[in-house]
Design a binder for these strands. Structure first.
Lengths: 228, 228
DNA sequence: AGGCACCCGAAAAGAACCTTAAATGCCAGC
DNA sequence: GCTGGCATTTAAGGTTCTTTTCGGGTGCCT
């Protein structure tokens, strides 16, 4: 679920866009002034900002520059001003895209999606840390730590743990694992999974009889829980 | 210096754009057909593709989809077709931006720059000094030093090390390397990479069995870490 | 008790990887 | 256009690590 900060002072336009974007599965934060927008971004950076020009409090270029002073968040300018000068200036001031009203909400969504697609990779890079209790799984470095100590997992073990750590407390079936971790239809036997789970348990310093993090759920699958 | 692949069949428009883009310091490869463009990209991936619709040989949507099958290169659609359907479809098919003729070359440049800015973070900004532990990679002089001593790397070795040094501690896949360092789709084999890594390790005074900086992550790729 | 699901040690089977050496491609200078 | 040198890629063999298979075992549930 992506979070969109919508900065638009015309209530009618704002309402229409909120509706269109929400329909498409985005979480929208609608605001009417540049100052509110800056404050909001300082507190929590959204996945993308839609910025109207002609806000009541601040000139668009100034608002954009201040925003850029805070963060590198993707920004789409959506405005009625279509003069060439304005387009070029704002793009050069750090905007990612510029759409001119009237535009269809469909086009705006397509442009948002395109921009998110382009930025997605970076997000992965920056936020690849999963934590469950004293367990840390760093997807970027591909290192898993228990209480700060590197577990020295190999590929399968790491992928397995990462998959579980991404879904703490929920039961994962063997079928899920074959599909998502092994990425194939037929693994000869569930034995295969069991063996890898066993290796993983050993490295975690636990066993099936005395589980701390990695619990078996009989007849269903496995579950990674924070101990306690 | 960024490299732009310009796919445009109208000779007059092509000439004008080549001129405008070259003036702005871009290296431009102008081509007139989609087939030529695909061939060119398969051989060497540019920094950005400007794609005209209405090419003589292939429908724009088809061309874009085939291009996306090969690579993730940023694509700007530049065309006279301004109907909503076309805009939305192509953005959803993987285009990054869509500008409608007639557009000013200034606006095109601004959009190119915006897109490169958004994409660039991964590439080396060839203006700086990367440091990882006792390793220095000077992108401007293209010199790499270990504890102050010049390693005497050749082109590939340098690019490889620079790419890794720009992402310390993160695991980089062979696929990333083929795409971003070799910049082409078909490298006969991963062997190629292995061999260059081997040369690089030798010059770094280490080996796969006893890595200091350059670690293999089996089944995934490589990782440059600060030793210790 | 008997069936089922699961656990785990050991060892075979299979990939991935490293290195050296030879072949190929590319460019500069003649 | 040829020739030699350098950089890069392909090829081959060996090594190490990973993954799977096998088989005996344990414990839960009906």
């Amino acid at each position: 679920m992506h979070e969109i900060l919508l900065v638009e002072d015309d209530p009618a336009v704002q309402a229409a866009l909120v509706h269109a974007l929400t329909d498409r599965g985005f979480a929208v934060v609608p605001l009417g002034t540049a100052v509110d927008a800056l404050r909001s971004v300082a507190e929590r950076v959204p996945d993308i900002v839609i910025l109207d020009l002609g806000l009541p409090d601040l000139d668009g270029g100034a608002a954009l520059r201040m925003l850029r002073g805070i963060t590198n968040v993707p920004v789409i300018i959506a405005t009625a001003r279509s003069d060439e000068r304005s387009v070029v200036d704002l793009l050069n001031a750090g905007a990612d895209d510029y759409v001119v009203k009237p535009f269809s909400s469909e086009q705006l969504v397509a442009r948002i999606t395109a921009l998110l697609r382009r930025t997605a990779r970076h997000d992965d890079d920056d936020s690849g840390l999963l934590e469950v209790g004293g367990l840390q799984v760093d997807l970027r470095q591909r290192v898993a730590r228990l209480d700060g100590r590197d577990l020295g997992l190999n590929r399968r073990e790491f992928d397995l743990l990462a998959y579980l750590a991404a879904r703490p407390n929920s039961v994962v079936t063997r079928r899920d694992l074959i599909h998502d971790v092994w990425r194939q239809r037929h693994v000869g036997d569930d034995q295969t999974i069991d063996v890898h789970v066993s290796w993983l348990r050993r490295k975690l310093g636990e066993s099936a009889a005395h589980p701390k993090y990695l619990h078996t759920v009989r007849g269903v699958g496995l579950k990674l829980v924070a101990p306690g």
